[in-house]
Design a protein around this nucleic acid. Structure first.
Length: 503
RNA sequence: GUCCCGUUCGUCUAGUCAGGUCAGGACACCGGGUUUUCAUCCCGGCAACAGGGGUUCGAAUCCCCUACGGGACGCCA
């Protein structure tokens, strides 16, 4: 079938697998299946400094865990590969050339310094920061000369000076932007890699994508994409922008305020079917309004027009309720037992705990009380215990610093974790023993427990992050958290001592 | 700040396109029942059309304005 529906998900391998990715994947999947089409998975690894193989693997494996199977992708191949953008560079280079020839793009030699200065100036004048078209005035000869001299340059998209861009969003109808307020977006970076905007258009075209179903965050850059299709002489796909998942405070879902890693839900003991079901009821209701449904039921009855557009708040309480129903309605006791065993009651996992606990055992019955915090979702403890002998505000500060430092850990293991705490101990000039005290409580629920670093390794980054976040919330609720002002100051001091945060 | 998108119970939503049933369901919460406790299960309750103007016999539904919320404004995606 030539005109069959093809959708895609295009995760960027720059971090932990995000539930937002799963959310988009779910509806791309459902839409494709509903129309007997295919869903393609494409890795958007055009950011050389941030992309990693580990992250790519983690994302594929998490989506697999959820059962959101794609028809073509880097792991399973397909007729439109390769499915990693870093392996398709020639294609983008050709397109840039085509765009330059057609007058839709131009090289820009401005230095990052000049651009920063320009930005600050515009910001100072309360203008929207935009490229000023400086390099648009270069003559052919000057360009030739600079390129030959090996000057670093990027390619920018040339936006019309006036007029409007009108496009149709499947869910919202006509959307209109003045070209005036769209920036001359970089489409090829100085390292020769394309930016998202170029790569996604080129790939969507070559991969035969018929429907681009993506997050609302992209709606503002759609005019640029439309222009790229025009410049390359291609027909744009159908666009549908889905609402963004939100934190309880209605901001875009973020790991600062909510567990956002798919792995968290796995580690915390949720069933993939329940997570998928829950995600499916965010912004969507089946025509018959049933609320327990699987991927297939969702796909069979899926009507994209039924998507509601208000950003749904991710409510863990409801997810838990749903998960409970799956446990007792969808599975037999044998099934549940098997799941528990596979989850954490397996010999592999328990045998990792044992060496930590052995010296502390007098009877076998000591084992589970000692290790329960590795099996719990969240441990319980009092605020007094958390603070201990440390000063309250100091506790919040240390937790926050650790939270930021943990984001920088590439490979989550004992050594890295140990190094992290050693570093904080030194820079904050606090004895390791005293530094660790509040962490023992936040992580294990007790001031006395199994060795912390090994425990953290076993617990994994996602459960760890959540426990630190919860501890911070407890402190705030009692007025011992960081005020807005204190946080600002801490951010600054942190950047000076530890380097920039990665969020 | 500029632009774009959005707005029905605390939360997820049905109803909006084709204007006309006490605005329906679910989570959470509260109360009652079953259960040695708890949970499950069952029953009941609380609770919303953001505001203001139009159009109309009639507006949650169509139009306009305002407010509020979110997003975008990177050589990130």
């Amino acid at each position: 079938m030539i005109n069959s529906v093809r959708t895609r998900i295009a995760p960027s391998p720059t971090g932990a697998p995000h539930v937002g990715t799963a959310y988009m994947a779910l509806f791309n999947f459902a839409f494709a299946k509903k129309h007997n089409g295919k869903m393609i998975l494409r890795i958007e690894d055009t950011d050389q400094s941030r992309s990693s193989k580990e992250s790519e693997e983690a994302i594929l494996s998490s989506l697999n865990w959820l059962g959101l199977q794609w028809d073509e992708g880097p792991d399973c191949g397909g007729d439109f590969g390769p499915y990693r953008q870093s392996e398709r560079l020639d294609l983008y280079k050709d397109s840039v050339q085509k765009l330059v020839d057609a007058g839709y793009a131009y090289p820009c030699f401005c230095t990052p310094e000049r651009l920063t200065e320009l930005r600050n100036e515009q910001l100072g004048n309360k203008e929207t920061p935009r490229y000023d078209g400086h390099c648009l005035n270069l003559t052919k000869e000057e360009i030739q000369q600079k390129i030959q001299a090996g000057e670093k340059h990027v390619y920018r998209l040339k936006i019309p000076n006036e007029g409007t861009c009108l496009f149709k969003d499947e869910l919202r109808g006509d959307v209109q932007f003045d070209w005036k307020q769209i920036d001359h977006q970089v489409i090829q970076k100085s390292d020769g890699f394309p930016t998202y905007h170029l790569a996604n258009v080129v790939d969507d075209h070559h991969m035969g994508i018929t429907h681009v179903i993506r997050g609302e965050e992209w709606i503002n850059s759609t005019p640029k994409h439309i222009l790229l299709y025009e410049g390359l002489g291609w027909k744009p796909p159908v666009f549908a922008h889905l609402p963004l998942l939100r934190n309880p405070d209605k901001s875009k879902l973020s790991k600062r305020k909510n567990p956002t890693s798919i792995d968290y839900y796995k580690d915390a003991g949720f069933l993939p079917e329940a997570v998928v079901n829950y995600l499916g009821m965010m912004g969507y209701t089946l025509p018959d309004q049933r609320e327990i449904f699987d991927l297939q039921e969702l796909s069979e009855s899926f009507e994209i027009k039924r998507m509601s557009l208000g950003g749904p708040i991710f409510d863990i309480a409801k997810l838990k309720w749903l998960n409970g129903r799956y446990l007792r309605e969808k599975l037999s006791q044998e099934d549940v037992l098997q799941k528990i065993i596979e989850w954490k009651a397996n010999p592999e996992f328990l045998s990792k705990i044992l060496p930590l606990a052995l010296n502390r055992l007098e009877t076998l019955s000591d084992f589970f009380p000692l290790s329960h915090f590795l099996l719990d979702d969240l441990p319980e403890y009092s605020l007094e215990k958390l603070i201990g002998k440390t000063e309250g505000l100091q506790v919040a500060k240390l937790l926050k610093i650790a939270e930021w430092e943990m984001e920088k850990i590439q490979k989550w293991n004992r050594d890295q974790i140990s190094a992290l705490f050693q570093k904080i101990s030194q820079l904050e000039d606090i004895k390791l023993k005293h530094l660790l005290a509040p962490f023992f409580v936040a992580i294990t629920g007790n001031s006395v427990s199994l060795p912390l670093f090994d425990s953290l390794e076993l617990l994994g980054p996602d459960l760890t992050r959540t426990r630190i976040r919860i501890a911070l919330e407890k402190l705030s609720a009692d007025g011992l958290g960081l005020s807005k002002k204190a946080l600002k100051k801490l951010e600054k001091d942190y950047a000076n001592q530890y380097g920039n945060r990665i969020d």
